[in-house]
Amino acid sequence: MDIIAGQRVGEVMVSHSQRIEAQCYDLHGAPPLGALLRIGSPPAYAVVREIWHEALDPSRPLTPRGRNLETEEEIYAANPQLSAMLTTRFAGLVVGFGAGPTVRFGLPPQPPNLHAFVFACDSDETAAFTNDLGWMRLLLTDGSPAVDSALAGFLRRSAAVVADRQGFLLRAGRTLAAELSRDPQRLQAILRETTT
């Protein structure tokens, strides 16, 4: 399912200062890894770090249903209750927040409220985050291995919309290099993922 920029995608279910978890309105309807999210009002901004699908009721584990079916779609067609039993969730790392008319990088004074609406940011909002990339540090300090891919995803998608692609990638790469000066291998891995 394609997510349109600016679209509302879900609500916050778990909220920490540096991390939120949200549940999508639609099964398999999460914004992509590395997408920029706007959450609640006053807005907090987060980058999608991880997406997962699971059963709504943890006491009722899933079982295979397609042994005698040809395609995956047929499973859902034959079991219409599934879309109500299953859900898609995603986690975002908070990187900034709205303070009046401007966006500030860092963590908001309060975490987003529960049930706060989660939007996929449009390109204007994303541009604000490509001007100053100092917030990337907040992502890099997160221990999750998925975060590097999330960062690469953000850069790749941002590069596609900025005017000067090469200039942007070089600036982003140098900002990253300053953060990862002790770990050139990790730096190169992220760069490789960004440019391919």
């Binding site: 990638l169 070089l170 790469g173 140098r174 990253l176 290099a177 050139p184 730096l187 190169q188 760069l191 490789r192 440019t195 391919t196």
Partner: peptide, 13 residues
Amino acid sequence: RSPGGDDFHAEVM
């Protein structure tokens, strides 16, 4: 060398 064949990595570093 990045897969594209340019020296992007060297340029960044």
